[in-house]
Design a protein around this nucleic acid. Sequence first.
RNA 1: GUGAGCUUGGCGGAAUGGUAGACGCAGGAGACUUAAAAUCUCCAGUCCGUAAGGGCGUGCGGGUUCAAGUCCCGCAGUUCGCACCA
Length: 879
Amino acid sequence: MTQSASKSDLQASSAISYNFETVEPHWQQVWNSGDVFSVPDTPPADKPKYYVLEMFPYPSGQLHMGHVRNYALGDVVARYKRARGYAVLHPMGWDAFGLPAENAARERGVHPQEWTLKNIATMRTTLQRLGFSLNWDREIATCLPEYYGKQQKLFLDFMKAGLVDRRESWVNWDPIDQTVLANEQVVDGKGWRSGAPVEKKQLSQWFLKITDFADDLLSELQTLDRWPERVRTMQERWIGRSEGARVTFALHAPPAGLDTNLNAVEVFTTRPDTLFGMSFLAIAPDHPLATWVAQSNTDAAAFIAECHSLGTSAEAVETAEKRGIDTGLRVKHPFLDKDFPVWIANFVLTDYGTGALFGCPSGDQRDLDFAHKYNLPVVPVVLPAGKDQADFSIAAHAFTGDGTMINSGFLDGLSTQDARREAIARLEGMGVGKGVVNWRLRDWGISRQRYWGCPIPVIHCESCGAVPVPDAQLPVRLPEDVSFDKPGNPLDHHPTWKHVDCPHCGSPATRETDTFDTFVDSSWYFARFTAPHAEAPTVRSAADGWLAVDQYIGGIEHAILHLLYARFFTRAMKETGHLNLSEPFAGLFTQGMVSHASYKDASGHWLYPEEVEITGQGAVKRETGEPVTVGRVEKMSKSKRNTVAPSAIIERFGADTARWFVLSDSPPERDMEWTEAGVAGAARFAQRLFRIVSTVAQTVPVQADIPAEIAAQADDLRRVTHRTVAAVTEALEGFVINVAVARIHELTSALADAEKAADMPGMVYARREAARVLCFLSAPMMPHLAEEMFAQLEPGSPVVATQPWPEADPELLTAKQVTIAVQIMGKLRGTIEAAPDENKDDVIARAEAEPNVARLLEGKRIVKRVHVPNRIVNFVTAG
RNA sequence: GUGAGCUUGGCGGAAUGGUAGACGCAGGAGACUUAAAAUCUCCAGUCCGUAAGGGCGUGCGGGUUCAAGUCCCGCAGUUCGCACCA
């Protein structure tokens, strides 16, 4: 035997023991050779289809416990649905493009492709070792041309359909690394890697016009009734529909030399009713008019530069004082014969609305703060209900609620609602404004100045402009011979790759060297899984047959971007004929994180759990015995070193134990804590279950028919068995897997207890029945153990993975005898036994006679007798 | 600021308005063993009581009900998301 100490502890002592090291690979091999998890591209006609999908992993190098939990949950659904007679599509792939591969290349000189493929191989091995019922023949990796080439085709079709745009956009630019940074890569206004101050820079970028679908993406959220409410709410807020008006303010005296299209400033407002309360107009630092002003106004230029240097982090925004600079320009009010100053203000957002607003200090707190700082007038225009105009004024707080209009000319006396309508009507009549719907959602900028991503299939020609790469030249492959010695984008530095002839006119041209945002890759992989090897991006019979995904499972961190982009892509693919549905994910489940205690040694260094030993007195460092501080239970992360590697757990306890533990204690949507004691407990249970079922298999003869004579103990066991079938079924349907686990524990104990009454009539049948049911009920969670037990119990039968789910006999769902609680005034005073659905009067009479109840009822008058069948009797007394 | 969620033993958690604490972890006692591990049996919210039994208990304060962890109103704490969105 070549077992480690810990394994022999668990296994060597007991005569009957589940040897996962040989059993688990054996059944994996049986499943694979029997091809039991494969389904055809076109779903079979004789079964309903079910598509279960977990968010595919980024191949970082090692599977982590969060993955194990995610895929264990998905596998429970897949195996359960298969047993319920569905044709189940359950694929797996790799979200394989992204920055870590480039970082590895720069830091360790390994090529991104090599690094990525090696990671995939490692992680695939771990996943397969866990025994998930996946369609491995559908595996895809987004970094392979077989995938990203089809993505380029989609992009070109989107272009033809007018869903793609190219425009200037502001980016975070790292001047040292010569690269664009995502917002989360900007830390305190500096590049996360270089530490250089980040600059705002305008670049020409590709955009997908997600805002074309804003209305639909919002309204269709209502149809997603199997999505968590909070995810829908988050998306709703992200899309951010608001009704209001656009109003044009003409400059009072446009300065000479000003471009005529800057002669007026357009603002968006949700409160056109408060126009009479205006005291200034504010534009964003990047508004074209601000840029123009800064050319000749050094103070303005300095202010704008300062705004740019300020970080966009939450703290910076929160603490930033409202500041501005008066441009000296003035605009005419549409309704009043007055003009107002134009300020450049740091709190005006460039990319919301029109990047300009009119300030009404009495009706908006930000405007009020600004007015106070710069001594601008505050005119109250909305009178709250119950207030008197004579003594109403605005001090520290703006009034943002509804009321009656005052100081507002023709709007005076109207309600806020009516005033809004009237103001818009007047503006439209004058041709200086209109009612509009404004969206917070912006078009999706997809250009990234990076190597390890899908090349954008466009060629830039001096005479023809941006020319799509012809279909025949797809895929545009990434060159492999690239250098990461220089900062910036290796595609840009490559000596030959970008130089091509224009497909249009044939003259020398250059390839687009930007690649797609990796969110593009994950926006359609669920569709590709339905026909992963096809020439076209999708095959309609496959996609139409399998989609939508019936159950999508993943982390809450993707609640907004990934899910929104995927919803958009599905619509865009529908518009271009690649799909025929709008909503890709009919059901969504967001699982909680896996957390673990964190440990620090005396010098403050984090320690991995395997470096720490928990003793009766506390925690000590395993090697040295020095004391260890046990810190908070936190999400597993490398920085806190509170991670546990799945591969190590599998090696020590086996796949089934790891799976059982992550499913056991906590409800799937909540965070769970990984503990050494917990996983050891799961391992003990696996052994116990195996031992009990094995004992039945080896010692209880087979009896095909239900015996005529059956003792009470055997009947009880049968009732527990059938009730457990019903309870586990209900729990799995409701995704409360921890409860299913608890019910399996109970049946296991009941079967163990039955051994004592092994000789009673009917026990042979009842024990075999319970053992058989345990195989099937535990199979979604511990599939290898289930197969091994079942093979012992019924040798020669087909594998559990291909067998139907057990059915509960309705006759056996009720107990033969029920315990009824007896209360007086709602307080429990005793219990009595009764037959199910026993006559009400008999039950009440016996309840009243229960000794303790009778004692307490003495001398009391019973005014009411409440009887809930099979549950409770409650006496209401008086006096 | 704003939206959503959560709050039950030492811990994770269970509970169609009907015996609160299922199931598990940790703990205690015992059996087996030369011993340990493993396994098995039993105990276990809390307070009073030898016991029978009783008091108090699901964050806090009210309410509805024969009966509230569950429904309603208010408050507190906590977590997460978004955040100068005009």
